[in-house]
Write a protein that binds this DNA or RNA. Structure first.
Lengths: 210, 210
DNA sequence: GGGGCTTTTTACCAAATGGTAAATGGTTTC
DNA sequence: GAAACCATTTACCATTTGGTAAAAAGCCCC
């Protein structure tokens, strides 16, 4: 991956991106529509890289989201606090997916959820200004943007559906199927929260499965 | 409401819509963008009405969705069968909302869910051909369509979130808050399924609340 | 490698939920 | 109005899950 490490361990290093990891990003985009080289170059010219150390926030409840991100490396989670003060992990996102509280970003409204780096993360990011400029400049980008967002929302709904109706063991197995490889990168406490059970229950379930 | 009742109790009566209930529909649409009279007239000229008796299907798993619907009167539910053969109610939709398996409708793919009338229902419906024609003819309609879909998907996610993390009583109370008035129009068995609990548990919870 | 820290597992019991079956209540049909 | 039907509640007990606490395992730092 890109050899851009943070000199001071802080989270806000913005750099011009290197060349080749962009391919994953461009390939992702081109799934949803056609763009010519000039157009993709324009989009890439707006991208910056952002590194976040583990546990830092990509965006925070109570603040206005600054970026749309595309996750090149790492895992993030969306979480919020319910009215009992419990921290609820709502979603996980891994490599080569967009990361954004899109509704709040678009409207530049205060967010109600946190987006947190679960591992060390590397993003491509777009500011509101650049994102809007892409929409106005690149013909067809708005359609692609809509398709991507729709796709993300549908995936979220599909992933979370079994979490309501199935028993805890089935939910856990379904999680493993949906996110193969995430199991070893994410604390079990977050997975338990995502599945809507306690950490102890999850541990019991894992024991029964072995 | 429109006085178009079915002569034979069957579900496929398509008629030209009357005038005034369209207002709710147009008002709904204009929330998401501006259209002039000519444009809304064009859209209305494509709308037909569809009446469905209680328990009939608006669209069925294994079949290609024929219409996008706008629910003028009644309640529908989305449901599917999980791999244990249990029927799961995934969502409820009530008056003045769009009803569509939009992804499958757009692609004219076989659906995996049922959309069923919970009460007697009256819809405005649009065929695939007319829907596409609206997109190609009415400038700005595609944007409105995207916004509406995004809005529906976000609402679905928001409504279903507490169903994962909260206990059954909280989920029930949250359901009542989200759908005031639906309680008396929908069988409790469907509500229990929606909440991810058995009918007996729901009955117990209702007893405890009194 | 050892001390200190966090994560994960285990144990115990209380509480909530599921499953089966029967009773009650309400509605429709004739 | 009685019979038949469906929806809802109740009861009982088995199973699952939650909550508290402690033990074990893993990890980091020096």
């Amino acid at each position: 991956m890109i050899a851009v490490f943070l000199p001071n361990g802080k989270c806000n290093a913005l750099n011009k991106p290197e060349i080749w990891p962009m391919e994953a990003f461009i390939n992702y985009i081109l799934q949803f529509g056609n763009l010519n080289k000039q157009q993709t170059d324009f989009i890439l010219s707006k991208a910056k890289t952002l590194e976040l150390p583990k546990e830092e926030y990509f965006s925070e409840a109570g603040k206005i989201p600054r970026y749309v991100g595309f996750l090149l490396e790492g895992v993030v989670r969306f979480c919020y606090y319910n009215n009992k003060g419990e921290e609820i992990t709502h979603s996980f996102i891994d490599e080569n997916n967009f990361v954004s509280d899109q509704q709040r970003f678009e409207a530049q409204m205060v967010a109600s959820e946190y987006i947190q780096a679960v591992t060390h993360c590397q993003f491509l990011v777009f500011s509101k200004k650049d994102w809007d400029e892409m929409g106005n400049t690149v013909l067809g980008w708005k359609d692609i943007e809509h398709l991507i967002l729709k796709n993300c929302l549908l995936k979220t709904i599909e992933r979370r559906s079994p979490l309501v109706s199935e028993d805890a063991t089935t939910r856990y197995l379904s999680f493993i199927g949906q996110f193969p490889g995430l199991l070893n990168r994410v604390p079990l406490s977050h997975i338990a929260s995502y599945l809507g059970i306690t950490q102890q229950s999850l541990s019991r379930i894992r024991k029964n499965i072995r």
